[in-house]
Computed example of a mutant assay.
Amino acid sequence: MPNPRRKSRRAWVLAWAVLCVTGLAATAWLQAAAAPPEARPERHIKAECRDFMPETEDRMHMAESNSKGQGSILVVSPPGTDCSDDVHDFLREAR
């Protein structure tokens, strides 16, 4: 006569394995369906930082043309504004 306890363990292990495989498949599908970074909308830039960004971009282009791949750039946001997140995102995209 079969042991009912053993059958129950097998059912639990099989159910657990099916759930794991289903979860991995769903995760892979969701990651594949995610929009590529180019298709994502641009990040909103604060109004007080909007005038500051072109100046920073001009300084970066001037520094790139004057340097030979070496050097660093110091970016300081205008007093009284909090542009650190916007400048950080801008510099990350400029790489």
Rank of each mutant, 00 (worst) to 15 (best):
P2E: 13
P2I: 09
N3V: 03
N3A: 06
R5S: 07
R5Q: 10
R5E: 08
K7W: 12
S8Q: 07
S8H: 06
R10D: 12
V13C: 00
L14D: 09
A15L: 01
A15M: 01
W16R: 05
W16S: 13
W16Y: 05
W16I: 08
A17Y: 09
V18R: 02
L19N: 08
L19C: 11
C20R: 06
V21R: 00
T22Q: 10
T22K: 06
T22A: 15
G23M: 06
G23W: 06
A25D: 02
A26C: 10
A26V: 14
A26E: 07
T27C: 14
T27A: 15
T27K: 12
A28D: 01
W29F: 15
W29Q: 15
W29C: 14
L30W: 02
A32N: 09
A32L: 13
A32R: 14
A33T: 08
A33S: 15
A34Q: 15
A35R: 14
P36I: 00
P37Q: 05
E38K: 13
E38F: 11
A39Q: 10
A39D: 09
A39L: 11
R40K: 15
P41F: 01
E42M: 12
E42H: 10
R43N: 10
H44P: 12
H44E: 15
K46Y: 06
E48N: 08
E48C: 04
C49T: 03
C49Y: 04
R50Y: 09
R50P: 05
F52M: 03
F52N: 00
M53W: 02
P54S: 04
P54K: 04
E55R: 08
T56W: 01
E57P: 01
D58W: 09
R59D: 12
R59G: 14
R59N: 12
M60D: 07
H61N: 07
H61A: 12
H61L: 13
E64Q: 07
E64C: 11
S65K: 10
N66P: 05
S67M: 05
S67E: 03
S67Y: 04
S67P: 02
K68A: 13
K68V: 11
G69T: 01
G71V: 01
S72I: 01
L74E: 11
L74S: 11
V75P: 05
V75R: 08
V75G: 06
P78I: 09
P78R: 13
P79S: 10
C83T: 04
C83A: 04
S84M: 14
S84Y: 14
S84A: 14
D85K: 14
D86T: 06
V87N: 03
V87G: 02
H88L: 14
R92A: 05
E93K: 14
E93Y: 06
A94W: 00
R95I: 08
R95V: 10
R95K: 12
